[in-house]
Amino acid sequence: MDIGRINKELKEIERDTASGVRVELRNGSDLQHLTGFVQGPKDTPYEGGIFKVEITLENSYPFVPPKMKFLTKVWHPNVSSQSGAICLDILKDQWSPALTLKTALLSLQALLSSPQPDDPQDAVVAKQFMSDHETYRKTARFWTESFAIPPSQSALEEKIAHITEMGFDRAAAVAALEAVGGDEQAALERLLG
């Protein structure tokens, strides 16, 4: 294992604060188990989210790709909504040792911007993406607000607060918002209907 290289990679990611990706060590000085963070790209349903990625480096890294999967739940055709497993060519047979953890995380960010429904990881999401794009967008946005945006800034929390102020309990508010893809007005109508 090329420890020198991994250290250099981590330093470079730390230095480049504008890249929108970050990596942290998970257990002390263990370089094989890392956590990545990817900012949701602008003008996508993932905007504003911070997506956590579990990174595992094998002894043979960088000759083999880093193992990556989303820890944050993501609604995306190329990410398993169940397990966070990612379908991305460079994490499989198209990995080149010229790539780095940073380029891999940036590729995940690019994948969030440009889903590839023809090569899906989650068949249900991919089908929805193709056949009912609006619902896909709403669901992806709802998941982003539910799981990827820190609670303090979450628009979802605001919506839940508004609805609970009207006397509905929290579980009902969440269920109604989920059912309508996060639209507060529609959720209220549903609850009042």
Binding site: V64, P65, K67, Q82, S83, A85, L91, A123
Partner: peptide, 20 residues
């Protein structure tokens, strides 16, 4: 089997385990 119904592709981990 994933709860979502449709079969999913093998994960990176499975593919890499096979390669290893």
């Amino acid at each position: 089997a994933p709860a979502a119904g449709a079969p999913e592709r093998p994960s990176d981990e499975e593919i890499l385990a096979q390669q290893n």
